[in-house]
Computed example of a mutant assay.
Amino acid sequence: MSGKIVLHYLNGRGRMESIRWLLAAAGVEFEEAFITKKEQFRKLADDGVLMFQQVPLVEMDGMKLVQTKAILNYIAGKYNLYGKDLKERVLIDMYTEGIAELMESIVLLPFIPPDNKQKQLDNIERKAKDRTLPVFEKGLANTQFLVGSQLSRADVHLLEVTLMLQEIFPTILSTFPKIQAFQERMKALPTISKFLQPGSARKPPPDEIYVKTVMDVFSHLFK
C-alpha cells in the first residue's frame, strides 16, 4: 500500500492543482479522495494527519505530507524535476516563487466579491504583462527549458499558470512568442499531453458549485 499515492482535497483546482500537474508530468499515477463536507475535513484534523490544520494532504511513500511548497519540493526531488545541483535548484526556486505569487492571485479570484472582481482582474493582467511574463520570455530566449538541459518543476508550473492566464485573458501571450513556443513544446511531451486530454485528473476552472463547496467545508475560516 505504501506505493499508492492519494491526494486529499476538494474536487477542484485550488492549491492541489500544481501537485496534480507535477505528478502527471512525472508520469506518476495517483488517486484522489475528495473532501465534500465539513465533517470530512474535521475528521482529518481530528485524526492528527494535518500538521497545521490545512489541506492539501498527500499520502506518499508511507508519509502524510502537508504544506504545498514542501509537497512540491518532495515530488520534484524524487522524480528528477529539481535540477542537477544546488545552483540549478535555487534558480528553479526563484522562478517557481514568482509563478506562485501570480497563481495565488488567480486561485483566489473566484472568491473575490463581485464589486471588487474587475479591479483584481486588472491587477492580475498588469502584474502578468509587466512583471511576470517578461521574466520568462527572457529566460526562454535561447533555451528549451527554463533551467539547465532538462525538464524541471519550473517548466511545469509555467505551463500551468500561462494556461490559466489564457482562460481569463485569451490574447495575453500575443506579445510573448518565446512563451508561446514553449507551451507547444511542453504540450507535446507525452505525460503532459495525456494530462491535457479530457477525462484526466486535471480540474476545470472553478465554478459556483466548487466555490460553494469551499465555503461550506472551510466555513470555520470565514467567521
Rank of each mutant, 00 (worst) to 15 (best):
I5R: 05
Y9E: 02
L10Q: 04
G12E: 01
G14K: 00
R15Y: 12
E17P: 05
E17W: 02
A25Y: 12
A26N: 13
G27R: 05
E29Q: 15
F30S: 14
I35H: 01
I35E: 06
I35P: 07
T36L: 13
Q40T: 07
F41T: 05
K43V: 04
K43D: 12
L44Q: 10
L44F: 09
L44A: 08
A45N: 10
M60K: 02
K64E: 09
K69V: 08
K69G: 15
L72D: 10
A76H: 11
G77Y: 07
Y79E: 06
Y79H: 15
N80R: 10
L81D: 08
D85H: 11
E88K: 10
E88L: 13
R89V: 07
L91K: 12
D93K: 08
T96Q: 12
E97V: 08
E97W: 06
E97M: 14
I106A: 05
L108Q: 13
L109S: 08
P110W: 03
F111W: 03
P113G: 05
P114E: 15
N116E: 15
Q118D: 13
K119R: 14
L121S: 09
L121A: 05
D122N: 13
N123L: 14
N123D: 12
A128C: 07
G139T: 10
G139Q: 08
A141W: 13
N142I: 02
Q144K: 15
F145Q: 05
L146F: 11
L146P: 07
G148E: 14
S152V: 11
H157L: 11
E160Y: 13
V161F: 02
T162E: 08
L163V: 02
L163S: 10
F169Q: 09
I172W: 05
S174T: 05
S174H: 08
S174N: 15
F176Q: 10
K178Y: 10
K178S: 08
Q180K: 11
E184G: 00
E184M: 03
R185N: 07
M186S: 04
M186C: 05
M186N: 09
K187T: 03
A188M: 11
L189T: 04
P190W: 11
I192C: 06
K194E: 15
K194P: 01
P198K: 00
P198D: 12
S200M: 13
A201C: 08
R202T: 03
K203Q: 14
D207C: 02
I209S: 13
V211G: 01
T213W: 03
F218D: 02
S219C: 06
S219A: 12
S219Q: 14
H220Q: 05
